[in-house]
Measured scan of single mutants.
Amino acid sequence: VKKMAKAIMADPNKADEVYKKWADKGYTLTQMSNFLKSKTAGKYDRVYNGYVIHLD
């Protein structure tokens, strides 16, 4: 998940494709939050927020 999150950060155009894969795998927002937690607070906030919007 972190590898794909980094791919989104490097190229935001990949976001919809990645979010669809995550949704197809049934990842919940709680799971995504836990996967994307980082020592650098807020590092993956943009990715998480994008997934929230995708699921909505």
Rank of each mutant, 00 (worst) to 15 (best):
V1K: 04
V1G: 03
V1N: 03
K2Y: 02
K2T: 06
K2L: 12
K2W: 04
K3F: 10
K3Y: 08
K3R: 13
M4E: 14
M4G: 08
M4L: 11
M4Y: 07
A5Y: 03
A5C: 06
A5I: 06
A5R: 02
K6S: 09
K6Q: 13
K6F: 07
K6G: 08
K6D: 15
A7H: 07
A7R: 10
I8A: 07
I8K: 03
I8Q: 00
I8C: 07
I8Y: 02
M9W: 05
M9T: 03
M9K: 05
M9D: 02
M9Y: 04
M9S: 03
M9H: 05
M9A: 04
A10D: 13
A10K: 14
A10P: 03
A10T: 09
A10H: 10
A10C: 13
D11C: 12
D11T: 04
D11M: 06
D11W: 07
P12T: 05
P12I: 08
P12S: 08
P12A: 10
P12M: 07
P12H: 07
N13V: 08
N13D: 12
N13A: 14
N13I: 09
N13Q: 11
N13R: 14
N13W: 12
N13P: 05
K14F: 09
K14Y: 09
K14A: 10
K14Q: 10
A15W: 05
A15M: 06
D16R: 10
D16I: 12
D16L: 13
D16M: 11
D16Y: 14
D16V: 11
D16G: 12
E17Y: 11
E17C: 12
V18M: 08
V18Y: 09
V18L: 06
V18Q: 04
V18F: 07
V18P: 00
V18K: 02
Y19R: 01
Y19F: 08
Y19D: 00
Y19I: 02
Y19T: 01
Y19N: 00
K20C: 06
K20F: 06
K20T: 10
K20L: 06
K20I: 08
K20G: 08
K20V: 07
K21Y: 15
K21Q: 15
K21N: 13
K21A: 15
K21T: 14
W22F: 02
W22I: 01
W22G: 00
W22R: 00
W22P: 00
W22A: 01
W22C: 01
W22M: 01
W22Q: 00
A23V: 09
A23M: 09
A23Q: 10
A23K: 09
A23R: 10
D24L: 12
D24S: 12
D24N: 11
D24P: 00
K25E: 13
K25R: 13
K25I: 13
K25D: 10
K25M: 15
K25W: 15
K25Q: 14
G26N: 06
Y27L: 08
T28R: 02
T28D: 07
T28L: 04
T28P: 00
L29Y: 05
L29G: 05
L29W: 04
L29F: 06
L29Q: 07
L29P: 10
L29V: 11
T30W: 11
T30M: 13
T30K: 13
T30L: 13
T30R: 11
T30Q: 14
Q31T: 06
Q31V: 07
Q31I: 09
Q31L: 07
M32V: 13
M32D: 01
M32L: 14
M32G: 02
S33N: 09
S33R: 15
S33T: 10
S33M: 13
S33Q: 14
S33D: 08
N34T: 11
N34F: 14
N34C: 14
N34L: 12
F35H: 05
F35R: 03
F35I: 09
F35M: 13
F35A: 07
F35L: 12
L36N: 00
L36K: 00
L36P: 01
K37N: 09
K37R: 12
K37G: 07
K37M: 10
K37D: 09
S38I: 06
S38Q: 04
S38E: 05
K39I: 08
K39P: 09
K39M: 09
K39F: 09
K39N: 12
K39D: 13
T40S: 10
T40Y: 11
T40G: 08
T40W: 09
A41D: 11
A41L: 12
A41N: 11
A41P: 15
G42C: 08
G42L: 05
G42S: 05
G42M: 05
G42T: 06
G42A: 05
K43I: 08
K43T: 07
K43Y: 12
K43H: 05
Y44E: 02
Y44L: 03
Y44D: 00
Y44K: 02
Y44P: 00
Y44T: 00
D45V: 07
D45F: 06
D45N: 08
D45T: 07
D45Q: 09
R46S: 15
R46M: 14
R46F: 14
R46N: 13
V47T: 01
V47H: 02
V47I: 13
V47E: 02
Y48A: 02
Y48V: 07
Y48C: 06
Y48I: 13
Y48L: 15
N49K: 11
G50K: 04
G50L: 06
G50N: 03
G50S: 03
G50I: 06
G50E: 06
Y51F: 07
Y51H: 02
V52S: 10
V52P: 01
V52W: 07
V52K: 15
I53K: 15
I53G: 08
I53P: 01
I53C: 10
H54S: 05
H54W: 15
H54Q: 03
H54V: 05
H54N: 01
H54Y: 15
L55R: 01
L55D: 01
L55Q: 03
L55P: 00
L55A: 02
D56N: 15
D56H: 14
D56V: 14
D56M: 15
D56F: 14
D56L: 15
D56C: 15
D56I: 15
